[in-house]
Design a protein around this nucleic acid. Structure first.
Lengths: 344, 344
DNA sequence: CCCGCGAATGGAAACGTTACCAGATTTCCA
DNA sequence: TGGAAATCTGGTAACGTTTCCATTCGCGGG
């Protein structure tokens, strides 16, 4: 690989001059600059990223930790971050958890790995990390953003939609269609944003005079497999319900798949509402109505804040994110009381 | 950030000694080593990745180019690569195309971006790159692997399943159930692996005495939207078919969604076969039967080959990948001739 | 007792770049 | 035309590491 020394030699100029042409800083006579540019082209010179990093103390790199790249929830986040970063010549390095075993330890290790790699900033998504972890991590690298979750201790580092509100909206969407018998398939109890949306949902129900204790809540794991299994358990339970709220789309998709097989027709017999409005919701059968979380905006604003911290940019940062319902085909009017669901 | 100089000073030893402790190479007396380790801990010293890269000429980084992170096709690839790399202390940097506009130029730019970043090796997936592009790219960085596609000119850099065989198996799977009227939803004609599977499919049909010209082929774009639209077009065309082969799962999912809405029941009225056997296939409604491509193995072996090139490892590398059918619920016996599909 | 060998150690050099300083040349105005 | 200012240029230092070489020390064998 050609170095800037080679360039300087070939162009017959000093190191400084060659460097000035490369960086575009400082003044160089047009003729000389042209000669240098020619040499660069001829030698196929590319500045060494390592040398620049070493000298400047900045790697122009943002690290992203994601628990597990499964399903369609995280992918738009990565895509968004990469696009934004590349447009300013920076890049992204990713670390995943493996999805098995102790996710909390994996998260800590993953983030530390990224720190060691000299990332200028970090974007972290994790349900399992606790307050202590995140504080200790953010001491090692203060340029840290947490997405889709809020830690009290470092609140301004956190960007998230209001999932309690999300749950509220979900309840309203279902109540509007006259439903009054509910079931919920919840995500893991260890996931704070999951419990927020469940609580929001239940609270709204209570406010409308529906006893939360009459709502059957099945705990699952955010996966389609989990959704499928919960759907099965739900039907077996003989619990009466006309509306089912799933804490994410992946589980809802599993539910839809199982209902189809079990001969339960959606939304005629039961309405199903998803959450997140991911790609999986768009073309399920039937297409899934879902609570839309503006994840792109959340990600982007978190990233902006981070860029401001790392590189003294002055991007405008929002902290409020509107939640809405994306209406598709799985929520409809509650069936008449007489048309009882014939639980399999 | 503490440097190794600080460590040496605090431990009261020379630079060389400190370095020997850090790297574990060379001999250091136990007592001294202990003192150094203490200093490292006390200062929270972490070796600078940039300095190491500069000196060694290796960044311990593999670059991955992916056209667009949508759907569930690419995600397991990223996950696989990252897991494998992290286990040996290396890491992955990713570049995406944006999915819009001139994908070929994006691919070239993306890969060059990765080269500039000093990646030791590159993993590239792209349908749009042509032979000339890849040759010129691989001159800049010979440690380059192409996944899921084969270029004649650099055949040993390419790792892919045999998609012609995939197409053949797909045809056999459908023929076995007595189908004789077919339709195909194809991916883009510019995608070589797509045309391979279509050709394999058609060839097998021909061999079994079915005239390929009687097969309706709709061209689409590998997306669920595209699948949905094609399904619509297919029904409108009044073409008679009992089996539909989709060139990937994403499109098949779109088809399933549209069929559900249109009241076409799968597999009773028509059988649907997907391709790739991605996550999307697992919990569609009904669950999608699909041609299983061992993408994890393809990826892993490509990566092994790359690691051998980059780091003189000697991992064992396979180049043959078995294709099979994952049977789920969308393929069944062809309906009796009398039970005509009532095209909407 | 001395020579030689191995272990332990410190320090200089190098990796490729940019920032800075100092010197040289040109430009411009009084 | 003289001098100050602006422009242009080359070389050195520095970023944090590891590798290599030279030096010292202790020890065992001849």
């Amino acid at each position: 690989m050609a170095t800037i020394k080679d360039v300087a030699r070939l162009a017959g100029v000093g190191l400084g001059t060659a460097s000035r042409v490369v960086t575009g800083k400082g003044s160089v006579s047009p003729a000389t600059a042209e000669r240098v540019r020619k040499a660069i082209k001829q030698l196929g010179f590319r500045p060494s990223h390592a040398a620049r990093s070493l000298l400047s103390g900045s790697s122009q790199t943002i690290g992203v930790y994601i628990p597990v790249l499964k399903g369609t929830f995280y992918t738009p986040i990565l895509q968004t971050i990469d696009m934004e970063l590349r447009s300013s010549g920076r890049h992204m390095v990713v670390a995943f958890g493996c999805g098995l075993g102790d996710e909390r330890r994996q998260a800590v290790e993953g983030v530390e790995f990224l720190i060691d790699r000299g990332c200028d900033g970090l974007i972290v998504m994790s349900n399992q990390l606790n307050d202590g972890d995140i504080v200790s991590l953010s001491r090692k690298q203060p340029n840290l953003v947490v997405l889709n979750r809020s830690f009290e201790s470092i609140r301004d580092h956190c960007f998230s939609a209001d999932h309690t509100l999300g749950g509220t909206l979900a309840a309203q969407a279902l109540l509007k269609f006259g439903h009054c018998e509910f079931a919920i398939i919840s995500g893991p109890a260890t996931s704070p944003d999951n419990v927020a949306r469940i609580n929001g949902f239940l609270a709204e129900l209570a406010k409308r005079g529906i006893n939360p204790n009459k709502v059957l809540i099945l705990q699952s794991d955010f996966s389609p497999e989990g959704g499928w299994a919960s759907a099965e358990a739900l039907l077996a339970s003989k619990h009466k319900f006309t509306a089912l709220f799933c804490a994410n789309d992946e589980m809802a998709v599993g539910v839809l798949s199982h209902f189809q097989q079990a001969g339960i027709s959606v939304p005629e017999q039961v309405s199903v509402l998803g959450y997140d409005d991911t790609q999986s919701a768009e073309y399920s059968a039937p297409r899934l109505t879902s609570v839309h979380i503006p994840l792109r905006e959340v990600t982007l604003n978190g990233l902006y804040w981070l860029l401001n911290q790392c590189y003294n940019s002055s991007l405008k940062v929002e902290r409020e994110f509107p939640i809405s319902i994306t209406w598709r085909a799985t929520v409809a009017k509650a069936p008449m009381a007489k048309a009882k669901r014939s639980g399999k």
